[in-house]
C-alpha cells in the first residue's frame, strides 16, 4: 500500500508567487493494481507522482511507500534504492535519451543501480522487446528515430530497471491511437503477468475506463475522490461538475437508458454490448 497522509507541497514557499500544488492529500494506492490519476491541467497530478520516487519531498505530511516513510523536513536515506523500486516515466520522456545507441541508453538505468554490464544489456534487450522496438533499432542513435520510437525507448529505459511500481506521467500523449493502445496494453500485461503496480496519469478517459482498476480525481491540489473506475464513470453529477467527459461505452449506455432500454451494469465494452444484444434478439 502506498499511503499519502496529509501531504502538502508548496512551490517557492518564500516567494510572493508561492503556489500550493498539493493541499493536504490523503490517499491510498493499492499495490498490484492499475490506478489512474486524472484531473485538469494544473490540478497537481505531476507533482503528486513526483513524490512517489522522492524527486519532490513533501512540504508537510508524510508518504509511505515500499517500506519507506518520507516525512516533511526529515532526511530519508537510501533514496536511490527507492528509485530502483519505483520507476517514474516522465511526460515527454523522449528527451532524456543521450547515449550513442538505443540499447546503451536503455542499459544506462540498470547500470546506475549497480547491475553488471552484461546483465544490463540483457535486461535492455528484454525491455526493448516488451515495448515492441525491433532489434534492428538497437544499434541506432536515439536521436534520429521517430518521436514514437523515442518514447518507447525511454519507457524501456525504466522497465529495464525492473521496478516494483511503475509510474507513468501521460505516457500516451502525442502517440498515434494504435501506438497508444499498444503501449497501454503493455502496461496492462505487466500488471497482470508480472504483478507490477501501475500508476498512470492520463487525460484519456477511454484508457481509464478500459484498463484502470481505480481512479483518483484531483482538483486544485486536493483529492476529490478515489473510486473503482467503473463506479466512477457512473457518477453522472460528479463527472458533470468536474467537466469530465464520459467514455463512449458509458455515454452509449446512458443514451440507451434515457430511451428506456436497460443495459446490465456489468457490460463495460462495446463487444460485450454487442454480445448482449445478440443474445436478446
Amino acid at each position: 500500500m502506498v499511503t499519502f497522509k496529509e501531504l502538502s507541497y508548496v512551490y517557492a514557499p518564500d516567494m510572493p508567487y508561492k503556489t500550493t500544488a498539493l493541499d493536504r492529500v490523503d490517499l491510498d494506492i493499492t499495490e498490484g493494481k492499475i490506478t489512474a490519476i486524472i484531473g485538469k491541467t494544473g490540478s497537481g497530478k505531476s507533482t503528486l507522482v513526483q513524490h512517489l520516487n522522492a524527486l519532490l519531498l513533501p512540504t508537510s505530511g508524510t508518504l509511505e511507500i515500499e517500506g519507506y516513510t518520507i516525512k516533511a523536513g526529515e532526511k530519508t536515506s537510501k533514496l536511490k534504492e527507492l528509485r530502483r523500486k519505483v520507476g517514474l516515466v516522465f511526460q515527454f520522456s523522449e528527451y532524456q535519451l543521450f547515449e550513442e545507441t538505443i540499447i546503451k541508453d536503455v542499459a544506462f538505468g540498470p547500470k546506475n543501480f549497480g547491475v553488471s554490464e552484461e546483465e544490463a544489456l540483457e535486461r535492455a534487450k528484454k525491455a526493448l522487446e516488451l515495448v515492441g522496438l525491433d532489434p534492428s533499432y538497437y544499434q541506432r542513435s536515439p536521436l534520429d528515430i521517430s518521436g514514437g520510437q523515442k518514447r518507447r525507448a525511454a519507457i524501456a529505459g525504466i522497465l529495464a530497471i525492473e521496478p516494483e511500481i511503475i509510474v507513468l506521467d501521460e505516457p500516451t500523449a502525442g502517440l498515434d491511437p494504435k501506438g497508444a493502445k499498444e503501449m497501454i496494453g503493455l502496461f496492462a500485461m505487466l500488471n497482470k503477468k508480472m504483478h507490477k503496480t501501475i500508476i498512470i496519469v492520463t487525460h484519456d478517459n477511454e484508457i481509464v475506463y478500459d484498463f484502470a482498476d481505480d481512479v483518483t480525481l484531483l482538483d486544485g491540489g486536493k483529492v476529490v475522490c478515489k473510486m473503482k473506475a467503473h463506479d466512477f464513470f457512473a457518477e453522472r453529477e460528479l463527472l458533470e461538475s468536474h467537466d469530465i467527459y464520459r467514455p463512449r461505452i458509458v455515454y452509449l449506455k446512458e443514451l440507451l437508458k434515457d430511451k428506456g432500454i436497460m443495459i446490465p451494469d456489468d457490460i463495460h465494452t462495446l463487444a460485450d454490448l454487442a454480445a448482449f444484444w445478440r443474445d436478446h434478439e
Partner: peptide
C-alpha cells in the same frame, strides 16, 4: 530541471559519487 529529474529516476546521482560517475551524470 525536467531532464535532471528524468535521469535521477534512472538512478543518476547529481550530488554525490566518484568523478567518473559525476562526468557520466553531467553527460546525461
Amino acid at each position: 530541471m525536467r531532464i535532471m529529474n528524468s535521469q535521477k529516476s534512472r538512478g543518476v546521482d547529481f550530488e554525490e559519487g566518484k568523478l567518473k560517475e559525476k562526468i557520466s551524470a553531467i553527460i546525461s
